[in-house]
């Protein structure tokens, strides 16, 4: 399972980098989405996988021997929430940029570079 997830992370990262390097701004944003998801999956894999119970223990019971690590899940959840906010902003931004520049092309956006 670890190997499979590791391969998934790798594929996500490479797809993300490929998309970020494209000229199209829409693809750029999709690439950023993939990049943040790849990082989330990486945290999930790196913090150890278990097949056992979820980290919710009913009142009055003691902790079972193996439970999934709740902290890693909390991290991912927070990262997803933040990613959601940032990407919502990015979508608004590319829309506005498209209205101003009238092209979905990074090459048309070199006005501030030199």
């Amino acid at each position: 399972m670890n190997t499979l997830l590791a391969i998934c992370v790798g594929v996500l990262y490479s797809a993300a980098i490929y998309l970020i390097l494209r000229r199209s701004i829409v693809k750029l944003v999709i690439g950023l989405v993939l990049l943040s998801n790849a990082s989330n999956l990486l945290i999930f894999t790196a913090s150890g996988l278990t097949r056992e119970a979820p980290p919710l223990i009913p009142e009055g019971e003691s902790m079972p021997a193996i439970v999934a690590d709740p902290l890693a899940q909390a991290l991912i959840l927070t990262a997803i929430v933040i990613g959601f906010g940032v990407l919502a902003f990015a979508v608004v931004l590319i829309r506005r940029a498209y209205e101003v520049v009238e092209a979905d092309d990074m090459d048309q956006m070199k006005g501030t570079d030199t």
């Binding site: 590319i94 956006m109 006005g111 501030t112």
Partner: peptide
């Protein structure tokens, strides 16, 4: 326009 280009 410059702001959009810079912001991206």
């Amino acid at each position: 326009r410059a702001q959009m280009e810079g912001a991206i």
